[in-house]
Amino acid sequence: MPSFFDAWLPFIYLYGVGGIFFFSGIIIIKKSGAINLSKKRNKFWLRVMLFGFFYFVALHFLVNIAALYF
């Protein structure tokens, strides 16, 4: 069984540092007006972007669990 350092640190680092980039992006496009949330289409894309982030978190988490315990 890999140590916690090998099993979970890459996961935490990936979504910690990657998350900083991702949410900075969301904040910047919102602040700059590049995404206008009063438009239906832009609201849809904001939901897609957030879904995508958590979709990959879940994907990595599940494969990690499968590798460690199954």
């Binding site: 992006g25 969301i26 496009i29 995404i35 894309w45 995508g52």
Partner: peptide, 11 residues
């Protein structure tokens, strides 16, 4: 790992 920069790309 390509999703982190998607907001910057899309908008």
């Amino acid at each position: 790992n390509d999703w982190f920069f998607i907001p910057f790309f899309f908008f």
